[in-house]
Design a protein around this nucleic acid. Structure first.
Lengths: 339, 339
DNA sequence: ATTAGCACTCTAACCTCGAGAGTGCTAACC
DNA sequence: GGTTAGCACTCTCGAGGTTAGAGTGCTAAT
């Protein structure tokens, strides 16, 4: 599969130019715009070869070439040079995380989506830390009146999950306290994902006589456990509209309605097989979803501590500025992990 | 401003037909499709009058008429007949609120946005109950380690606001408890919006010697107070794309980017001067926002208990099925309030 | 192996033209 | 006087045709 070095140059020129111009690029353009000391005719021959090999294609007989998905893949894997960000851009990123006095996780995520989409001009997707991975800290019941109480599940990362539960008047406050402290003792220090359903049913058995009241408590626990579909935060959803490939309303519609479906998005970002620097690039059909077969996704995961806690991605057209996007993503993940 | 009864009929026919067909409607169409026993010529004369009066307009010399915003306004205020929903639709609404075992406020809101947008085929906007209006229940501090603690502010409606704060090691746990119980005593039973900044600074003075630690606590309180911009939940944002008036990408872009700006949306839904049945209709330019000058907004407020707690709205083109939308909204608000 | 030259192809933009829809006006009608 | 038929007029929209331009592939020369 070895491409001659001249073919590589030409492929690189085609991809680079097409990324910038969004126009099929012809032999003449390459010989003029890039300093390959070659005549259009030579380039034409190589382009024909590249087309036959599946790296390029012609939209129609008499147009220039555009990269195929295979072409992009080769570009990303072999040809792409790492981009440098402008100093001002780096500063902008640093400022967001240093200067802003935002320490709430949700805030941080929102700022990140905005930052990322405004820098890249694509759509950004961010998934935050997972409740599942945090350790159980405390369970607490706070009565409102003699029927309802607020049940709080606190994790050591500061997550709080709460639920209003109904409890029988017959339950004395002493008894209530005993139950709560029993549960606390049993659950102490466990991470949420260790809260297997086995353990829950065990607890359920132990406290059989209080079962009615506790039902809702267990429901909360089970919910925390089941909550593996996490909210995907989006930014710059309208950016795709400025991409010329989305002049077609039908495509826009398909993408936007995908954006409304959290479950699909979460799935889209899932299971990145980390590549260079922990960044994965998925080009076109490599994304399983129908709607994004003409898009590329650049994904990074980030850690707080040693566990991977979140995913952060950029969705743009296949004709995306890969190297720049990757550079931005790296920079942001870096800053993010300092928190 | 009295329109002759025949002109009313004609205006109504034009609006009705245009709402259904999205095509300028001509005199011939009206005389054929609606049983006014009139010839096209007569209708033409009246239409010319209606145009002069500002209720109708012609896109170009030789097209039919379409309603102006004034025309829609007159239609909504005077001509519109109340729509009946199909039994199946009513059932669908009831099911969502009765059958589903969702009792979390956020869940309810999400289901509502989906329901509303799928029934109307427009975009739905829902604002939930306001933290501000709930009564303060309890402040609680839960230490993590000897530097950080979780600060919880619980309201009686089940709202929980939390923040991780840093506190000095020098603070003994007894002292901490005293501070917390002091604050609880002072704040007990107040609704959040009674938490004036005067009160907060008073407290701040009283606890001057603990000031450093408490600073973050006060920040939380002030944040709760300031939080008058509430999250607007959206549903069916892509529905607008199927409306023929949004064939233009620029308009779509403007609207969608509006949808990303929570603050503007919140403002858009604000201050409805309740009309019939507590439902407000804002047509075109009656909405202050540039981006929705070609849209109409139907807004209802809902109560849980006696206080108005939330707003729920539908955004569609000015050529919207007003009566149907209103009927759906009424039905949903009704069911919602039963909770 | 590379390049110049040339005939060929395809698209996109522009024009023209006619059909169709709808109007306004006038004159006739009840 | 209100209503209607008839007709000339206007405007849009789409189909069809034409042309300029860009880019190719092939051939023959270097």
């Amino acid at each position: 599969m070895g491409l001659s070095s001249r073919k590589k140059d030409i492929l690189q020129a085609v991809v680079t130019d097409y990324i910038k111009m969004a126009q099929p690029v012809g032999s003449r353009t390459i010989s003029r715009r890039y300093q390959v000391g070659l005549s259009p005719a030579t380039i034409r021959n190589d382009m024909a070869d590249l087309e036959e090999m599946g790296y390029l294609l012609q939209p129609h007989t008499s147009a220039g070439r555009i990269p195929t998905q295979k072409g992009y893949r080769y570009y990303v894997d072999e040809l792409m040079e790492t981009a440098d960000l402008e100093e001002s851009e780096k500063d902008k990123i640093k400022q967001v995380y240093e200067f802003e006095k935002i320490r709430e996780i949700e805030e941080i995520i929102k700022y990140t989506t905005n930052l990322l989409s405004s820098l890249t001009n694509y759509t950004s997707l961010v998934i935050g830390p997972q409740l599942k991975k945090s350790a159980f800290k405390k369970l607490q019941i706070m009565p409102f009146d003699n029927q309802r109480a607020l049940l709080l599940l606190v994790a050591d990362t500061g997550f709080v999950k709460n639920k209003v539960i109904h409890y029988p008047q017959t339950l004395s406050s002493g008894e209530l306290n005993r139950i709560v402290s029993y549960l606390n003792r049993r659950l102490e220090g466990l991470t949420i994902d260790k809260l297997t359903s086995r353990l829950i049913s065990e607890l359920r058995r132990d406290l059989y006589h209080h079962i009615k009241f506790l039902e809702e408590t267990f429901t909360l626990l089970e919910e925390s456990l089941a909550e593996d579909e996490r909210r995907v935060f989006l930014g710059g959803t309208t950016n795709i509209l400025s991409q010329p490939e989305f002049g077609d309303l039908e495509k826009v519609r398909a993408l936007l309605s995908l954006f409304e479906q959290n479950a699909l998005l979460a799935n889209l970002l899932a299971r990145p097989v980390a590549g260079i620097d922990g960044i994965t690039v998925r080009i076109g059909r490599e994304n399983m979803l129908e709607e994004v077969q003409e898009c590329s996704l650049v994904i990074a995961t980030y850690c707080l501590g040693k566990e991977v806690v979140g995913t952060i991605g950029v969705l743009g057209p296949t004709r995306m500025e890969y190297s720049r996007t990757i550079a931005i993503l790296e920079q942001i993940v870096n800053q993010l992990q300092k928190i």
